[in-house]
């Protein structure tokens, strides 16, 4: 009986006056929560329109976060966790599409665009340089134009 009372008082004391406590983190294990967050921001919630697993409040997203938490607790690697999810839902859950035959163009495309663009630019400039004849503008004239432009506002 006594011990119970002491424990109860101790508990009251530990929880302390309600106006002075430091708020507890939402989870007991901030490290694995951080890992969950790190994983979940790159995963897509399946039921929502277009939201990450981290941001979604849909019940399925909550369940999946729970599954991922459990896998983190079991010390599974990121790779294993992602495989668990893609085995069930396919690549759709990944916001970072894996590099595969079907996604090569997606990943290479942007850089291909730059290379093609740059090549086209160089070829066009070369070809153009051969076609255009320009009356040379002297340095003096150039400066005069600059000045006219700069003062344009002042002249009525």
């Amino acid at each position: 009986m006594n011990i119970k009372w002491i424990a109860l008082i101790g508990l009251l004391f530990l929880s302390g006056p309600v106006w002075a406590g430091e708020a507890r983190p939402l989870t007991d294990d901030p490290a694995s929560e951080a890992r969950l967050k790190h994983l979940a921001v790159e995963l897509r919630c399946l039921v929502c329109q277009n939201q990450t697993l981290a941001d979604s409040n849909a019940p399925l997203a909550e369940d999946l976060r729970r599954e991922v938490r459990e896998m983190i607790a079991k010390n599974m690697s990121d790779q294993e966790i992602i495989e668990f999810l893609t085995a069930r839902y396919g690549d759709f859950v990944l916001y970072r599409p894996p590099l595969k035959a079907s996604t090569t163009l997606l990943w290479v495309g942007p850089f291909l665009l730059v290379i093609v663009g740059a090549t086209a630019l160089i070829i066009t400039l070369r070809r153009r340089a051969g076609k255009v004849v320009d009356v040379p503008v002297t340095e003096d004239e150039h400066r005069r134009v600059e000045q006219l432009l700069a003062e344009g506002g002042k002249r009525p």
């Binding site: 897509r44 396919g90 916001y95 970072r96 996604t103 163009l105 495309g109 942007p110 665009l113």
Partner: peptide, 27 residues
């Protein structure tokens, strides 16, 4: 062009019946 590619790529794959993917912020 890259934004266009990333935005429409899921549609391209789906239309060619090559599976469904998501292209999101990490890409």
């Amino acid at each position: 062009g890259s934004v266009l590619l990333g935005t429409l790529y899921p549609l391209f794959l789906d239309a060619l019946d090559l599976g469904k993917i998501s292209v999101g912020p990490p890409y």
